[in-house]
Nucleic acid binder design. Structure first.
Length: 466
RNA sequence: GGCGGCAUAGCCAAGCGGUAAGGCACGGGUCUGCAAAACCCUUAUCCCCGGUUCGAUUCCGGGUGUCGCCUCCA
């Protein structure tokens, strides 16, 4: 049994072999922080956070680096429109990014480097490329000499001539070849800028990732990941820059997540169908959003709609309910109950098998539902041993934790004494078979958003939706 | 024009050579004082046409449909 990952470079699933035993170095392309993130940005964040959690579950130590692009054209435009500085905008949306992703239970990266804080390394990187003949200065800009890198196109599996003939590349007098791309852009008057050997300016987009990977992870890393659209040109260009300089493989495995679509169409500003996480999590539990994202294998596209999300609310609710009911039943028991390991192992095995197959979270989630079904059956019986129930609870929470899914309700679940008194009063009425009174109390509590469920082990209550 | 993905029940989604996981919804039943939660049962021959094979949803060829990359983009 071994972990296999799909590698865009070879277009195959390959056994994962880390550079260093028990360690993973991975880099995930992060957002350009000029606005709130949309659900398309959320997918790689959630997916690769899950990849990271799974590696850790399997005993790896993961060095997880994800950047913030905090200077580029869009930030500069936003700065002009809003009459505030580029760094102010970046700070605002980095903060928002952290809020949104943390709501989705995405853990903070080991390092979140910012382009503007990597400037010396970026400039040094470009200088070396110029010295090596892979880049040239032209009117204050610096370009990468694409054709000089023999392997250009190996990631996207395109020949350089096909790229050229099919491409809608604008003719740019300052470039030697239309395929050349910018490493450094000269500043226009009034724009934010940094000093460099080629004059004041700012870095091109691709170079920051090459510089950051080198700085934080080394010349060759295990995994480089991002959205499928980044395959070309972004990652192709990163490979060109880094491998031209280091003469060694930049990343052993390239992972790309599929896009999120709206009505089976690409999400884009021009269509006007962009959904911001910021807005979405006002309508839906962020955990449901995470669950929904993980319910599909990460390389496939996901269609997004309120209807689909509502189905996910139901499905995820089943997981939460089972977790809650197990807790309720075990609450009266000794807390130090040992879990029946044999039971837990029955589910770990298929879960690991699913995740080992290129992080098949859809199948992993199916295992969660298997636990729930079996746990519910066990719960049905009054004679089920607490060791067994503890095992279901333990393995459910362990495996959902690997997926980063939180099954517990937020800790506002405390009954005030008034409610408690009502519940007791109803119990009293039930005992006396005074069901009219009992039912009216139940209705009254339901109005207040508290749902009662009678079980052989006593009253179970929970807060209703909304 | 170049490169790629996808097409499985009402919906979502796994499987990828031996006659179809899981979830949501629907219907029937059980449990319950009534509910709720839960459990049980019921629901598909896998886009079309060829081929390979004892056997194909799964491999090969050809269609059709659909989404995407090739331009900033997760």
């Amino acid at each position: 049994m071994s972990l296999k990952v799909y590698n865009t470079l070879t277009r195959k699933k390959e056994p994962f072999k880390p550079i260093e035993d028990h360690k993973v170095r991975m880099y995930v392309c992060g957002p350009t922080v000029y606005n709130y993130i949309h659900i398309g940005n959320a997918r790689p964040a959630v997916v690769f956070d899950t990849v990271r959690r799974y590696f850790e579950y399997r005993g790896y130590i993961v060095n997880y680096v994800s950047n913030f692009t905090d200077v580029d054209d869009r930030l500069i435009n936003a700065s002009k429109e809003r009459h505030i500085s580029v760094p102010e905008i970046a700070d605002q949306f980095i903060k928002a990014y952290k809020e949104d992703t943390s709501a989705l239970n995405v853990r903070t990266a080991t390092v979140h480097p910012r382009a503007t804080e990597t400037m010396p390394e970026i400039i040094r990187f470009i200088s070396k490329l110029v010295d090596a003949g892979y880049a040239y200065e032209s009117g204050g800009d610096v370009y990468f000499r694409t054709r000089k890198f023999q392997e250009y196109g190996k990631l996207s599996h395109q020949s350089i001539d096909d790229l050229k003939s099919g491409a809608r590349i604008e003719i740019d007098e300052s470039k030697e070849d239309p395929l050349d791309f910018a490493l450094w852009k000269a500043a226009k008057p009034g724009e934010i800028k940094w000093e460099s050997p080629w004059g004041d300016g700012r870095p091109g987009w691709h170079i920051e990732c090459s510089a950051m990977v080198e700085k934080y992870l080394g010349d060759t890393i295990d995994i480089h990941a991002g959205g499928t659209d980044l395959t070309f040109p972004h990652h192709e260009n990163e490979i060109a820059q880094s491998e031209a300089l280091h003469h060694q493989t930049m990343a052993n495995y390239w992972l790309h997540n599929g896009h999120i679509q709206i009505n089976h169409e690409k999400m884009s500003k021009s269509i006007g169908n962009v959904i911001l996480v910021h807005d979405l999590i006002k309508k839906f539990d962020p955990q449901v959003v995470r669950f929904f994202i993980l319910s599909v294998q990460y390389r496939h596209p996901i269609n997004f709609s309120d209807t689909l999300l509502n189905d996910a609310v139901q499905a995820f609710g089943r997981l939460k309910t089972a977790n809650y009911n197990l807790n309720h039943r075990l609450k009266q028991a000794d807390l130090s109950i040992e879990a029946n390991e044999k039971i837990a192992e029955n589910y770990r095995k298929p879960f690991i098998e699913a995740m080992d197959d290129d992080f098949n979270t859809a199948n992993a989630i199916a295992v969660l539902f298997d636990i729930v079904r079996d746990a519910n059956i066990a719960l049905q019986s009054e004679t089920t041993s607490e060791h067994d129930l503890a095992a279901y609870l333990q393995v459910l929470s362990e495996l959902s934790g690997v997926l980063g899914l939180k099954l517990e309700e937020a800790s506002d679940s405390i009954l005030d004494s008034e409610v408690e008194a009502l519940i007791n009063k109803r119990e009293e009425a039930r005992k006396n078979r005074n069901f009219a009174v009992a039912d009216s109390i139940r209705d009254q509590l339901k109005e207040a958003g508290i749902i009662l469920e009678d079980t052989p082990q006593g009253v179970r209550w929970k807060r209703g939706q909304e």
